[in-house]
């Protein structure tokens, strides 16, 4: 089948999609956007987190056909042209990236949380990111990164 969707603001078209394919597979293998990751493919790890019409979802659990006509934002869509998004820069600065496999999903989830809740408490951050597994960092630097991004955002206003 053919799937039409908007990805990171650009209309996209995927052909020869098998009905069982996930949105994650279409993004990674058919649209050349491998930024969204494939750590568990069963909705447990959050590494494939994208926004579907604004809502964070595990793209591995979304059938490609369900994305027909909808807007998808992936990690590749966070940066503005040449400039990193504040949450991306904060992850680098705080040392929140080690192997980096969880990073794309965490960035999409954290970015969405900060949009809803610009001054999150630590408990708010932990709750919002509890669907994103990281095996390298012990999450402390991720907490630092989100706090940093929130602080920079507040200062910037």
């Amino acid at each position: 089948m053919r799937v039409n969707l908007t990805v990171n603001g650009r209309p996209q078209e995927a052909d020869d999609v098998w009905e069982g394919e996930s949105l994650l597979y279409v993004l990674r293998e058919r649209l050349g956007l491998p930024g969204s990751k494939n750590a568990c493919e069963q909705g447990e790890c959050g590494s494939c987190t994208v926004r579907l019409d604004g809502v964070p979802v595990c793209s591995c659990l979304v059938a490609a056909g369900q994305a027909e006509g909808r807007e998808v934002v992936t990690v590749e869509g966070l940066a503005d042209d040449e400039e990193l998004a504040p949450i991306q820069q904060a992850f680098i600065d705080a040392g929140a990236v080690q192997c980096g496999f969880c990073t794309p999903g965490l960035l999409v989830a954290a970015d969405e949380m900060l949009e809803r809740n610009p001054s999150p408490s630590d408990a708010d951050i932990r709750e919002a990111l509890s669907g994103n597994l990281c095996r390298c960092t012990g999450y402390e630097k991720i907490m630092d990164a989100v706090r940093l991004a929130a602080a920079r955002r507040t200062e910037g206003v």
Binding site: L33, P34, K37, E76, L84, G95, G100
Partner: peptide, 23 residues
Amino acid sequence: ESTLRPDGTLKVTGEFAYSSDLW
């Protein structure tokens, strides 16, 4: 010094190619 990772930018933009991303 706490210099930053040389692969940091690639990893936060989704451009860093993991073994499962190869094509």
